[in-house]
Structure formats: structure tokens, C-alpha cells
Design a protein around this nucleic acid. Structure first.
Lengths: 158, 158
DNA sequence: TATTGTTATACTCTATAACTATA
DNA sequence: TATAGTTATAGAGTATAACAATA
């Protein structure tokens, strides 16, 4: 006898599966990019700079949904490795435009390769059609909820 | 001109969408259960105890994939609110079997209601058939990766 | 001596707010 | 005075390892 009476359950809903699988996928990805000596936030920042280069740190912080102070450490680490550079605006010397260096572009390609392998590992049990189906459904939900494309919302609390 | 040459991109892959949406869904759920004065880990523990009552803390820790020491605080908080109780095993007094109280069963129903509302909010842009499709695909991936059904893997690092 | 649960400690990550420099 | 970036501080959450009770 169960201690609690349960209503008819057909397992967890889609939202729970989404959260659980999302955490799993994020963890796996984090493990993979360790090979490039990158953390997920650093990776996200590199991709964001590649997508819209020349932004100030404030603008980038707003785009990623993080306090500007957090960007400092991330940019510092990437700049120290020569992947990113701050270019001072001559007109307004307060602004630091963010750009990828040549090495930054190079590592971005490797990130893409890791992402591809990761995607294959996660979706391995799906055929091409199912995978496209899944991507379509997920993209619809993401759009419906106003998620910024290409930006992991985990910046807000991860 | 872009600073970096990009290969033909058709947006983020399914795995990235999964991670991003998963984080979003988890955050939304965390906000919702604030109404019950519960955190996500507490909620997960309540559901786990309901699913398999009478387990020792060690067994529960292994099931959830967390160090046993972490359970102490979680159980303490829930026990202090009268939602959970530790029943000492008479035969082996080291063991503390975990059970839900009547209030614990009660709040579990409210958690289910919150979960239902959450599921509707997340999947609002999908019709019933699409939602079932999504759940099927996600369940397949989860199974393929050996995720324990009903357990959020975030216990391992969240 | 081995095991359950607990406590103590330290570490990682993040946000908030104070501070510097430029405007 | 207002804004961009930085630094300092503190808080939440977690893991590791030492500890006490029971076997």
C-alpha cells in the first residue's frame, strides 16, 4: 500500500522532461568543452561576440541578461588567453568594444565541432526526420517564450 | 563584413535548444513553487519519497545522485514543516526511513497542480498532438541516456 | 572495523553595491 | 551629474571530509 493516493499518472509532463533533459545536456556539454579549457558561460560569451561583434560590455550584458560586473571576469579570462580583445572607442573612451581575435575565431570553429558532436550524442536515438521534428517543436516553444535565439538563459541564474 | 567567417548555419541544434529551454523551464518552475514555499530540490525530494517511501537516506541519496550529507538539510527543512518524517528502524537503529506525513501528501497534490499549470504554460504553443509528439521524443532521449525517470539530474550539480 | 547519518569546512558561482574614469 | 567599466563584499548552494552513533 502506498502512503499517498495518486491520481492516474502517465509519467512526467513534457515540461519536466525538458528541464531534466536540459540539465543533462548542459552537463554533458560542459564536460565536453573542458577539452578546450572553456566553461559554458565563456563559450556562450564567445558565441555572442561572434554573432554581434563590437558591442560594449553593457550592451552585451543586457543581451545575455547578466549584470555587467559579471562580464568583467569572463572577458578578462578570455582576453588573457588572447581569444578576445577590448577595443577602446576613441570618441568615448569609456566604451570597450568586444571583438574576437584570430585565435578566438579559431577556437569558435572548434566549439562548433564540439557542439556538433554533442548534438549527435544527445539526439543519437533519433533519426534525421525526428531530429528535425524535435528542433521545430523546441524552436516554437523558445520563440513563444521570447527566448533570445542563441542565448542560454542560464546566464540569469547559472 | 563579419569578423569571423561562418559555415552555413541553420541556427542552434536540438541539444542547445534543449539546454536553453530546459533552463528556462526550470527557472519558471522554481518561480511557481515559491508559492508553496518550496525549492526545486525540496520538491524533487518530496516526489521521490512519495514514489518510493521508506527508503533510507543513503538509498535516497544514491537514487537522486547526491551526496548523503546534502539530504540532511533538505530532510531537516521538510521535517521541520511537518511534511516528512524520519522513522527509525527498530532492528537497525542507524537507519532512518523517509516517509511523507499527511501534510506531505497534501502538498504533493498541490505540487502536481503547479506542475500541471507549468506544463501548460511551457507547452502553450503546442496542440495536444504536438505535445504528445514532443513528450515521446524527449522520453526516448531520456531513456537512451539512462536518466532515472522522474528524477531531475540537476541534483548532481545544481 | 564498517556503516548511517550528521556536522564542519571550504569552494564555486553569482549578485549587489561601492568605486574609478571618462563624459 | 551621469554613464562604462571595475573591484570588493557578501550570499547561496554544494561537495568533501571529519565526526558520532550504532552495528
Amino acid at each position: 500500500m502506498k502512503a499517498c493516493a495518486h491520481r492516474p499518472e502517465d509519467g512526467p509532463g513534457a515540461a519536466f522532461l525538458l528541464a531534466a533533459l536540459g540539465a543533462h545536456a548542459a552537463g554533458q556539454f560542459a564536460e565536453r568543452i573542458t577539452a578546450l579549457n572553456l566553461t559554458p558561460p565563456q563559450t556562450g560569451l564567445l558565441r555572442a561576440i561572434a554573432a554581434t561583434p563590437g558591442q560594449s560590455q553593457q550592451a552585451m550584458a543586457q543581451l545575455l541578461g547578466t549584470p555587467p560586473s559579471r562580464l568583467v571576469g569572463l572577458v578578462d579570462a578570455l582576453a588573457a588567453r588572447g581569444l578576445v580583445e577590448r577595443r577602446r572607442n576613441a570618441a568615448d573612451r569609456r566604451l570597450h568594444a568586444l571583438h574576437l581575435t584570430a585565435d578566438g575565431c579559431e577556437i569558435l570553429k572548434r566549439i562548433a565541432a564540439v557542439g556538433q558532436a554533442h548534438d549527435d550524442a544527445i539526439c543519437g536515438s533519433l533519426d534525421a526526420s525526428e531530429r528535425a521534428q524535435l528542433r521545430t517543436l523546441l524552436a516554437r516553444i523558445a520563440d513563444d517564450h521570447g527566448l533570445t535565439p542563441g542565448v542560454h538563459p542560464g546566464y540569469r541564474r547559472l
